[in-house]
């Protein structure tokens, strides 16, 4: 990907590249708590069926994944594992933080053992609010992420630079 990383890709090619990337997201399910069940409902149930959005939810390991959904409470004991998981993923990589717990601590905002927001550890692309969010909310988050991928400059991502969270 020397050409992409150099940032000299013609615009139509960038469009094509981004479109093919956004409709083939391999999504690793990092289910931690309650949100994991709603994520399961969104990804594995026939009612919500995430595959129609071009998301494949069955990579065997984070090393094959483009997208990780952090679904649930991240505790301080688990935080190193989350960080390590993120570092194992190949660039370009995306993170969806699902649920109040991984967004900001949620109902455990005053707990001694809960990490108040997974964005303290890894950069997050899309925050899905709710406790837990409905499966539709997660699907909306994925659609928003796809919009973001469509409009981004791939060079930035392929270089693996840290992403500005915001």
């Amino acid at each position: 990907m020397g050409l992409v990383a150099s940032g000299k890709v013609p615009k139509p090619l960038t469009h094509l590249l981004n479109m093919s990337r956004k409709y083939s997201l391999w999504c690793y399910q990092w289910g931690l708590a309650c949100c994991a069940i709603e994520m399961g409902a969104a990804f594995a149930s026939p009612r919500y069926d995430v595959m129609r959005l071009g998301v494949i939810p069955f990579p065997a390991s984070p090393r094959q994944a483009d997208l990780v959904v952090i679904a649930g409470t991240v505790t301080d004991k688990l935080a190193p594992a989350v960080r390590r998981l993120y570092e194992q993923m190949p660039d370009p990589k995306y993170v969806i933080s699902m649920g109040s717990c991984s967004n900001c601590g949620g109902p455990y905002w005053d707990s001694y053992s809960v990490t108040k927001g997974v964005d303290q550890i890894i950069p997050v692309d899309v925050y899905v609010p709710g406790c837990p969010p409905r499966p539709e909310a997660l699907l909306e988050g994925i659609v928003l992420l796809q919009e973001r991928i469509q409009n981004e400059d791939p060079a930035e991502r392929f270089r693996g630079d840290p992403i500005v969270v915001g």
Binding site: A33, T73, T75, K77, Y108, Y112, S113, V114
Partner: peptide, 9 residues
Amino acid sequence: YMHRGYEKL
């Protein structure tokens, strides 16, 4: 890994 300190909360 999922200890959230319920009894204290």
